[in-house]
Design a protein around this nucleic acid. Structure first.
Lengths: 255, 255
DNA sequence: CGAACTTTTGATATCACTCAAGGGACGTGG
DNA sequence: CCACGTCCCTTGAGTGATATCAAAAGTTCG
């Protein structure tokens, strides 16, 4: 269990599945049977290298993905190659279960880092929704949060300065990762390049660099070796006008 | 039926309801019974003046709204008063039915023009979803489209120039309004101020004005008296790199 | 060690914002 | 019917924020 490059590759399904269970449990109380099904689902994950498309724009939807480790994203491209990232999928996150209703995907889902993922077949989804009402309920709530997050990102890109955008993103990720047990205090792994952050915030990577410098020089964050340390969460939050309400996490985490 | 300020006030429920039925029918075939229920629902609409909050951030969700005429929007505010509009609700559009799962609203819904709306009580929603599977199906598909639209707006604000944003918005609205029978060729009523457009596109109203001038001078649009005429849809579309796939309207309308 | 990628910085250009003022359109009250 | 206020649109001039281009330094990994 020492220098293995594939994250969590050696862990039992029990551990791998934690992010998903922790996340759903936050939205609805789960029975032992519910948890068992979720663990079962995560039994045979795939390890996917960075920059791999999981689902492509134009594809016919076929099942959905759950991310168990690493970062993936939804994004769209312009003809010029310009990319806009619409959402991050962090451990515990999953695609929309209803997506099978559509004829074709309108965006692409790609890994940003090495990821552990499982694919849920359509039949499995139907089964989950039919026989596990609490999971179904948690998933519906989860989807509302995904939507709310998308609205907040639009606010971010439309009405915040570049420094504020970075600050807001870091606050959001802190709470999201904390909710699945992947933040240590105010420190977490952030396996993204500055170009990724740029495509998230709707700015250039050069400007991301300058914005990060500003946050660093203000003593708000430290970012090196794909690890983010928030040095002053109160000020970072104030700077970004970050309000956690849209994540609907309850008051435990959002403090 | 002459000088009445309240739009559609004198029309029978049959007509008023058209946008909703037309919209849902595009997503799933409806039975006569389905249509009858929808007409029933629209029987007692409210007329709401512009700039009226229908639902406020922080409220406990209680039922949802359907817009039958006029434009409303979802939006969020910053402490400074800066506003970001996240979505338009045009005739036939409705709020998310699942929203009752949340403890409090994370954004506000406000009318932009005079609107005709109906409120659906939670019990009515449950009834609809239980006893009218085709309506339920259409509503689920509709929600996927709302989400996809939000993603496209993020792309718009993050990765398009201000002129392109305006162009893209006008293309989108053309198809959405056409889908509910509210566009006449490439002409439609756009009851928004330039300040509203600014808060949609994440720019200032002064800059909206200059962007519109550019579109006008390029012979692409005409906009006066709250009526938009698209003079050259092909070029407008090309300028915005508008692709209608995310609206999932099928090929009939998107042409 | 070398190749590819990522981060960092500087100089310059461009886009969008701010401030300010004037000009419609429209409704209201005298 | 005119005078006035209000809201919205329009334009100009100057400023600020972000993009672009380019190059060097650091990092990672085979």
């Amino acid at each position: 269990m020492s220098g293995m490059p594939s994250p969590e590759a050696g862990e039992p399904a029990f551990d791998r599945c934690q992010p998903l269970i922790r996340k759903l449990e936050r939205f609805a109380p789960l029975s032992d049977a519910d948890r068992a099904v979720l663990e079962q689902i995560c039994a045979n994950p795939r390890i996917v290298p960075p920059q791999t498309d999981l689902v492509r724009e134009g594809d016919r939807p076929d099942g959905v993905f759950v991310v168990l480790s690493g970062f993936a994203c939804r994004h769209k491209l312009r003809a010029s190659g310009a990319r806009q990232i619409n959402a991050y999928l962090v451990p515990g996150d999953l695609c929309d279960l209803d997506v099978a209703l559509l004829d074709e995907m309108d965006h692409t889902i790609t890994t940003l880092s090495t990821c552990t993922v499982v694919r849920l077949a359509p039949e499995l989804i139907t089964d989950l929704l039919t026989h596990h009402p609490q999971i179904a309920r948690a998933l519906r709530k989860n989807r509302l949060v995904d939507e709310a997050t998308l609205r907040e990102w639009l606010m971010n890109v439309g009405r915040r300065s570049s420094v504020e955008r970075m600050a807001h993103l870091f606050c959001e990720l802190l709470l999201r990762l904390r909710a699945v047990g992947l933040a240590d205090g105010t420190v977490y792994k952030l396996p993204l390049t500055q170009a990724d952050l740029a495509d998230t915030a709707g700015i250039t990577s050069v400007h991301v660099n300058r914005s990060l410098r500003e946050l660093r020089q203000g003593g708000l964050i430290e970012l090196q070796g794909r690890q983010l340390t928030i040095l002053d969460y109160a000020r970072l939050r104030a700077l970004a006008e970050f309000r956690a309400n849209y994540l609907h996490l309850g008051d435990r985490i959002a403090a």
